[in-house]
Design a protein around this nucleic acid. Sequence first.
DNA 1: CCTTGCGATGAATCCATAT
DNA 2: GATATGGATTCATCGCAAG
Lengths: 249, 249
Amino acid sequence: MPYTLHRGDALSVLSELPDASVDALITDPPYNSGGRTSSERTGRTAKAKYTAADAEHQLANFPGENRDQRSYGYWLSLLLTESYRATVESGTALIFTDWRQLPTTTDALQAAGWTWRGIASWHKPVSRPQKGRLKQSCEYIVWGTKGPVDANRNTVYLPGLYQASQPRKGRVHITQKPVEVMQELVKICPEAGTVLDPFAGSGSTGVAALREGRQFVGIELSDHYADIAEQRMADELTQDDFDLAGPQE
Amino acid sequence: MPYTLHRGDALSVLSELPDASVDALITDPPYNSGGRTSSERTGRTAKAKYTAADAEHQLANFPGENRDQRSYGYWLSLLLTESYRATVESGTALIFTDWRQLPTTTDALQAAGWTWRGIASWHKPVSRPQKGRLKQSCEYIVWGTKGPVDANRNTVYLPGLYQASQPRKGRVHITQKPVEVMQELVKICPEAGTVLDPFAGSGSTGVAALREGRQFVGIELSDHYADIAEQRMADELTQDDFDLAGPQE
DNA sequence: CCTTGCGATGAATCCATAT
DNA sequence: GATATGGATTCATCGCAAG
């Protein structure tokens, strides 16, 4: 089976993963931002913060959006420390973040022992303009490695800017990432290596990993989203088998 | 005269500017990054750090690249504090930075009293790819305001991503910014308002401000670059007059 | 005027060697 | 042992000249 999906809290499950068992950590943790005051950030649900009041979709809420600034940094450090342990030498971490949490994320990454290597941008062409302001049309991918970069182990050349709109049709998660972007990013993991995503959500990272011939280990707390992720990954494999065998006559 | 160029150290000259005399701070300070060890960062010239070993151009060096990490943050805070004082209420700051100094820049901005509002990206299509890595193809624009955003004062909608290559033809500064990008950015300053750039360099911000009908106050330490900036801005005005009057017959 | 081809370049990063 | 210097890497893009 090229993928495993654990159900439970990210930190608890991570602590049970064996040392040096994955090649790349690629994840999109809850941002705990989206609000000017502490109470706006911590007292509201993800859905209230990240979806417009007039949005008509009925996407499910997700947990883990109630930390204040300090505890967010602390919690993220713990998480990245456990992930570091589970990653092989010269393995890579790619962490999605928004502008507000970017400095905290680079701090937490380094606090956890990773060598910070840079920032890439994900540009979302469809985003709301605001009068008298610069549009917040990018999210950011903070990346680093466990020790030195091994150019023999990983021979791809990846871009520093990814452009794609959030999925609209068939979207099942509020902050779902486009699979085409994730497919590019999983190439940072050596072929047939293992990608870890402790916040699997609706499973886009897993789908992308499978499509690119990587193994996948995911963790998801919410049963609602874990069910969706399992289904999407299973469909992906069936589709692959179909492609390989061709239609039966 | 729609522009003024002071020659001297940014901090010293800033301290002599009157309170609330400019509408927007738009600048590209020296980054003091580039290098893994302290001595690599502080002991080498800008040219040694930021130009490829095989480059054939002979652009002049620029000063101010010898601060270590802590003093960079301290110095930038002082600078942004003085700029804050010189800026009107609801005025805007746009500060260029690279990935390494981005967290320090957001800290310094806030330490100086500005309200941090976001990050925009400048994507440079021409940048060196590297094996096993994500390309560093973006620089970042950290932006904030002095107090609340006043949407009546400033009615433009600005993008969050700017794509343009560094000037190639006629480039005079190692880190010269494309005028078309700066022309977009100066629109954050109300029409006929004043843009301040304490690191004027070869004067691209000034040229952009003049083209967009904004006043400009610049500061530049190096006489070499101050001469170039004066010339470029003077040419810009002559060109404008020419455009307005049409060719003489 | 448009197309093709060639050459130069990058706010980079790292390793090997010298001091 | 820490720091300084030199050289190799790599490709999308852009300027320019030729066709």
